[in-house]
Design a binder for these strands. Sequence first.
DNA 1: TTAATTTTGTACTGATCGGTAAAATTGATG
DNA 2: CATCAATTTTACCGATCAGTACAAAATTAA
Lengths: 203, 203
Amino acid sequence: MTTKTQTVCRGRPCAFNKEETLGKALELFWRNGYEGTSLSDLTKVMGINKPSLYSAFGNKEQLFLQAIDLYEKRPDAFFYPAMEQKTAYLVVQSMLRGAADRMANADHPQGCVTVHGALSCSEASATVKDALVKRRLDGQQALQKRFEQAQQDGDLPQHVDAAILSRYIGTVLQGMSVQANNGASTEDLYAVADMVLQNFPKA
Amino acid sequence: MTTKTQTVCRGRPCAFNKEETLGKALELFWRNGYEGTSLSDLTKVMGINKPSLYSAFGNKEQLFLQAIDLYEKRPDAFFYPAMEQKTAYLVVQSMLRGAADRMANADHPQGCVTVHGALSCSEASATVKDALVKRRLDGQQALQKRFEQAQQDGDLPQHVDAAILSRYIGTVLQGMSVQANNGASTEDLYAVADMVLQNFPKA
DNA sequence: TTAATTTTGTACTGATCGGTAAAATTGATG
DNA sequence: CATCAATTTTACCGATCAGTACAAAATTAA
């Protein structure tokens, strides 16, 4: 158990910044998927050798899971932060526009790594696939809870089924991830987002 | 160039039905993706040896592309057939309900192989990924043309942007594929489809 | 029967896969 | 300076990857 910044430790100090290195792994997994990324690719991009990678992150699978953790916590994550908007409409607006901005951003791979990381894979990688499915379902459920809260707050009509609405928004977000993979621009995705927002149930 | 049924040929006859065998390859690619499927997996499920596979289908990449061709032409394909409905609304209704039915059908892998086959992959498989992107864009463009026809027919309002509407529907369909991968049932997907249909622009 | 032709099963190729053993290197501690 | 602990580099492991050489088997044509 090593802490990220160098704790006062004996022995040779770690020559790389763990979080920064993990970010490079994330970028690679994001672009090429879990099975499309090899350890040689990883060590090359991360700038470390395999034994360093294994001692710092465990193995390929654990490295991936840690990269996904970083993905959801990184500064320009948009999903969970959007949940803090004041009304259901504003939550969805922030979420869809955030998705349009980020998913087609050329500074990093297109789409969402939670969708692209391991949508289909061999049975050997089932653990990773299941972890991503769980992330997606967790996000959807959190959104459902947010909609239920909005109904209590009075900014989302009572007749709306929060489970179905959150599934619908989740569907659009995941579809936008595929669209970004198709080469859709932020502008293209904004148009889709607006279409959803125009029909969003009003209080 | 061998034709599918046995042409009158010299030499030892082919011991397997090419299209049927291709169907088994499709099922495997569909479930595990292009890179998640190995030649050993393929030969095992197809019931043939590697030299037979190579002489009949070329190589792994060409086998995949032929499997995708089969996918779009198989009896329970839903996308292009839906295009023949009489109005834009009916086209979309048929498309979304067909997707809900087929994508969560337990008789075969969930979702759409055009989305799941190679969403992310190593650069070595870029050809396959690009082929799938092209399929998705082709489908979306065909839908756009259908919407433009509907506007001429008078069953879709003129003010609607056919390009944006087709992108929106494509987004939902692709999102439904991910939802099916998450374990969503046909019922779940129907609810999403209904949500889209309720807000679909009326003539 | 024999020759020609095609597919079959077996066994193999070099390359790469994820993962690790072992020794050299680095730095803090005494 | 010597000791100890951790990380580094180098080299390797068995397994699997996609793809193929080759000869036995099966069929038609002569």
